[in-house]
Simulated scan of single mutants.
Amino acid sequence: MAPVDTYAADLATLVDELGLDDIIVVGHSTGGGEAVRFAAQHGRGRVSKVATAGAIPPVMVKSETNPEGTPIEAFDEIRAGVLADRSQFYKDLSAPFYGANREGSTISQGQRDDFWRQSMLAGLKQAYDCVAVFSETDFTEDLKALTMPVFIAHGEDDQIVPVDDAARKSVDLVKNATLKVYPGAPHGIAGAYQQELDRDLLAFFRS
């Protein structure tokens, strides 16, 4: 079983144990991939809607079939950073994650520190293995299999998962999808971007 299949199967087990139906699944970044796979493989009859934000589908890594993708060397650098000094790596990563390296950024140091705190809670092996999961998993067939309404949100200035390689490709693969790109927004959801996305998600849930 591929790691992302395990993510989706774990979620399916939780949904079964809780006896949930008519559910809406929401996922950010790698979690967006998990939401899509769960809905495609386990969601028939119980998932009513799917929403993703800054999500990795359809596939991130560059290949012969995905020439516009991100070169594997970029993901190798992430793995090297995690192994060499993950604490400093996460501190540095918080800048492009939240767009703190952009002129005019209002992201707080506290927000960046919390990103570091949450990242450090992940086990070293899990963080290392996850790089292959989010970069190399192909969700194309999962996206094609979705029949429920899907809301695809993405920051225009996402430096982690570029919008042109992800959301703008995904919307063309889903039968009933709506794409909203947030001008100037980064990968991390905070501040004005978070407030606008929250409003849009609530409207999507109620529609």
Rank of each mutant, 00 (worst) to 15 (best):
I160Y: 01
I160T: 14
I160G: 02
I160D: 01
V161T: 15
V161I: 14
V161P: 01
V161M: 02
P162N: 10
P162E: 09
P162V: 13
P162I: 14
P162K: 02
V163K: 00
V163F: 02
V163E: 04
V163L: 03
D164M: 10
D164L: 09
D165T: 12
D165I: 14
D165E: 11
D165P: 00
D165W: 01
D165N: 13
A166I: 02
A166E: 02
A166W: 03
A166T: 15
A166N: 13
A167H: 03
A167Q: 07
A167N: 07
R168Y: 01
R168A: 04
R168N: 13
R168C: 05
K169M: 13
K169W: 09
K169V: 12
S170K: 00
S170E: 13
S170Q: 10
S170W: 08
S170D: 04
S170N: 01
V171Y: 08
V171E: 11
D172G: 04
D172K: 15
D172W: 00
D172A: 15
D172Y: 00
D172L: 11
L173K: 04
L173R: 04
L173F: 09
V174T: 08
V174S: 02
V174W: 09
V174C: 03
V174I: 15
K175W: 00
K175E: 15
N176S: 14
N176D: 15
A177P: 01
A177M: 08
A177S: 03
A177N: 07
T178A: 03
T178L: 04
T178P: 00
L179M: 08
L179D: 11
L179F: 06
L179Y: 08
K180G: 00
K180F: 05
V181M: 04
V181K: 01
V181W: 01
Y182H: 07
P183G: 07
G184D: 06
G184W: 07
G184M: 12
A185Q: 03
A185H: 01
A185R: 01
A185L: 07
P186I: 11
P186L: 10
P186S: 09
H187G: 07
H187T: 11
H187Q: 06
G188Q: 03
G188N: 09
G188D: 06
G188F: 07
I189W: 05
I189M: 09
I189Y: 04
A190S: 14
A190C: 04
A190F: 15
A190L: 00
A190T: 10
A190E: 14
G191P: 04
G191R: 05
G191A: 08
G191W: 13
A192P: 05
A192Y: 10
A192H: 06
A192G: 00
A192R: 08
A192E: 14
A192D: 13
Y193L: 05
Y193H: 10
Y193T: 02
Y193M: 12
Y193G: 01
Y193I: 09
Y193W: 12
Y193V: 08
Q194R: 15
Q194S: 14
Q194T: 03
Q194K: 14
Q194E: 15
Q194C: 09
Q194N: 11
Q195V: 14
Q195P: 00
